[in-house]
Design a protein around this nucleic acid. Structure first.
Lengths: 218, 218
DNA sequence: CTCGCAATTATGCAAGTGTATAATAACTTC
DNA sequence: GAAGTTATTATACACTTGCATAATTGCGAG
């Protein structure tokens, strides 16, 4: 008599697509790095968490180094995709508002995300390939912010020199990064929405445009 | 015939004071953690860098864990001491100015310092003792900043509610942290003094007080 | 159905890890 | 200057690490 489902198959393992396995390994790696750091995420534990044996890692990645790089790229892409998605529509001021707001709420603000970022920093500072990914992400984020700022200023009838716009973007980026960091490092130190509120106030002050997020159900 | 100095002593080692050895071990630990991360800083390499053999570590610290905690405490104390020293004199506005300025220049802004901070973050999030040290440092820094802000506002004839002052301190702290982070993570992305300048502009905007650092040789 | 390929597991190894214990030798004290 | 204390070194051990290689086995092609 069979079991009710396919859970207990007589097969010793299942052949999955390369994409599936790579993603599973990368996610397992990220989970472990967030808790244990890069060096603490051992190939054995990564394999266990991805429900495979350790030998399989070498089948998809030529070394642990390569797996870590892939995981870093994945993490950064996830972060940027999530934030960029929040500033898609509306006028320039509200796009900027939404961008700042989304950057300072879950899932962007998250202890694991900050822990991951911190764990990777060592590698970033020494491995050129990691450095490239880092630069790329940072520039993408800051350029996006700069465009939003310029558009918002233009919309409110002001205009700024390019160099000044960059300075503003750096400053706003720093506030966001700093709040993001503190929200992730000290999760219980801030109430819900507090970081976003402080972020909006600060960006408003720096750029000189009042940014207010409408509260739902007025 | 003797050598000219005591360099090549026949003694196999020298007995140093406990303080000397503890400090040497802690500094060696910090150096290594900045480059390799906590897990990469092995007891053997730490000992080698402190010019002792590895057994001695266990003589001064009951475990590597304890050494790492001591190193973290040392690092954080160094950072806070260095910044606090910069806001000792002058009127309230210039004390605030100097504090922000000093926080965004070497030796506070420094790739190694940021790398260290990042390396410790994992441990901070999981080890209660490390967490205590972290909270303590963060609160100390932020309270200091808040006092400076309140004093500066008072000096310019304004006053704020306590809760609002805290919000301002959080925001300014975030700008400083964010700029500190980026300056350390991307050392070549900013010119000398640029971070400090942006920081002063941002804090000025947030708090609503113009802060200007006098340039020497006017 | 079975054959062959490659995805997956199983096993092994050399180097590195923290820690424990024993042996040595530098300095203090009388 | 001899003896005792203890800072320091030397050695050993059990365990983990990443990686390599061989042995399986699922699964599609013919």
């Amino acid at each position: 008599m069979d079991d009710l489902d396919v859970q207990d198959d007589s097969r010793k393992f299942k052949r999955e697509s390369a994409e599936f396995r790579r993603e599973a390994l990368i996610l397992a790696t990220l989970n472990l790095i967030a808790v244990m750091g890069v060096r603490g995420a051992t190939v054995r534990e990564i394999a266990a968490r991805a429900n495979v044996t350790q030998g399989l890692i070498r089948h998809y990645f030529s070394s642990k180094e390569e797996l870590v790089q892939a995981a870093y790229e994945h993490h950064m892409n996830t972060l940027t995709d999530q934030t960029a998605a929040s500033s898609g529509m509306g006028n320039a001021v509200s796009r900027l508002t939404n961008f700042v707001d989304a950057s300072l709420r879950p899932p962007i603000v998250d202890p694991s995300a900050v822990a991951l970022w911190a764990s990777f920093l060592n590698k970033v500072q020494h491995d050129p390939k990691m450095q490239r990914i880092h630069q790329q992400t940072y520039n993408y984020f800051r350029d996006h912010l700069e465009k939003l700022i310029v558009a918002a200023l233009q919309e409110t009838g002001r205009s700024v020199a390019a160099s000044e716009a960059t300075q503003l973007a750096i400053a706003c980026n720093a506030v966001i990064d700093g709040l993001w960091l503190e929200g992730g490092a000290l999760p219980d130190a801030f109430s819900e929405g507090q970081l976003a509120q402080i972020g909006l106030n600060s960006v408003s002050a720096i750029v000189g445009i009042p940014l207010t997020k409408e509260v739902e159900q007025p």
